[in-house]
């Protein structure tokens, strides 16, 4: 039997202590609110500038005429952005989906983790580096010059790891039981994956592709190095002819001393921002509903 234990120190809720805690609490919540307001405020400011000045600059001419010097319209740029973005997607979506299938369905052994790591790192490589790489290899060495082909390949390289990882995550959400059911009926790998898994995961996969589209539309630096700029509509050549795109207009025209150029820059920013935001919102709405969807990292 031991001696009686020493009495526990009385924890006094002294009033000054309580006050201090309340003040600290208030400060804490206050700071977090300020942080949030800073971000929200910045977002509102950006949207206000882009939407108001951009809307102001819109006119029928902008979407029906091509660029002439520092004025005119953006038809060539709009067309160019769409061609480059879809060109990039045509190259990256099938390949990215195939890689995503491999990582989700056949992840046994050592190859899959290595590829996944490489894909994740590739996402983080600055787009200018990819653009420069394409410049050195495609524009110069292969002689493609500034062209739709070079621009599309650059965008494809940027989108590829992104589509791969989002497809992988969408496929992993497909319950194991569905796969087992298909295998038990004697289906081969290709049938199980293409007939059951991909259709079930399609919303997630398509969303990944849409997000990659949004990224492609917003890119500038790699295209400066691979597609350059053109005042004309696409001539149909894949190589040796440059093409225009909206983001170039934003960058190049705002620094020119002509009001007409500024107007084009804001109009281009309006289109690009609107497009990107709509896709991002739509994709979040589709994805966030799904339970267990892990946040895909943003570029």
């Amino acid at each position: 039997m031991g001696t009686a234990a020493a009495p526990l120190p009385r924890i006094r809720a002294a009033s000054h202590h309580r006050l201090r805690r309340t003040i600290l609490d208030f400060l804490g919540w206050g700071m977090s609110a300020i942080a949030f307001l800073l971000l929200g405020g910045a977002m509102v400011w950006i949207l206000a500038v882009v939407v108001m000045r951009g809307y102001h600059a819109l006119s029928l001419t902008v979407i029906t005429h091509v660029t002439e010097g520092y004025g005119g319209g953006l038809l060539n740029a709009i067309e160019g952005t769409l061609i480059l973005a879809f060109g990039g997607l045509i190259l990256s979506a099938p390949l990215g989906l195939a890689a995503g299938i491999y990582l989700a369905e056949f992840d046994r052994g050592r190859l899959a983790p290595v590829i996944r790591f490489l894909a994740d790192v590739l996402v983080g490589v600055p787009s200018i580096v990819i653009g420069y790489f394409c410049y050195v290899t495609l524009v110069e060495r292969l002689g493609w010059k500034f062209s739709v082909a070079a621009g599309s390949v650059a965008l494809a390289i940027i989108s590829l790891p992104y589509i791969c990882r989002t497809s992988e995550m969408a496929l992993r959400q497909v319950p194991r039981a569905l796969r087992e059911g298909a295998y038990a009926l004697g289906a081969r790998d290709s049938r199980v994956v293409l007939g059951i898994c991909v259709p079930t995961a399609l919303p997630g996969i398509l969303t990944g592709v849409l997000l990659a589209l949004a990224i492609s539309v917003g890119e500038t630096a790699p295209l400066i190095y691979t597609a350059d700029w053109s005042n004309y509509l696409w001539t149909g050549h894949l190589t040796k002819e440059p093409i225009g795109y909206l983001t170039y207009a934003i960058w190049a025209f705002i620094t020119e001393p002509f009001a007409s150029a500024h107007a084009l820059a804001y109009a281009a920013a309006f289109f690009v921002t609107l497009f990107v935001l709509l896709i991002s919102i739509a994709s979040r709405m589709v994805l966030v509903e799904r339970p267990g969807w892990r946040r895909p990292w943003t570029r």
């Binding site: 949030f36 400011w45 882009v50 934003i250 960058w251 990107v276 919102i281 943003t298």
Partner: peptide, 26 residues
């Protein structure tokens, strides 16, 4: 939560060149 978070996260979706425009202009 979902909607407000989305609003803040869209900051990351805005293209770099649009940030440049906003920065340069205002």
């Amino acid at each position: 939560r979902a909607w407000v978070s989305l609003f803040v996260e869209l900051l990351a979706a805005i293209p770099s060149v649009v940030y440049g425009l906003w920065g340069y202009a205002v």
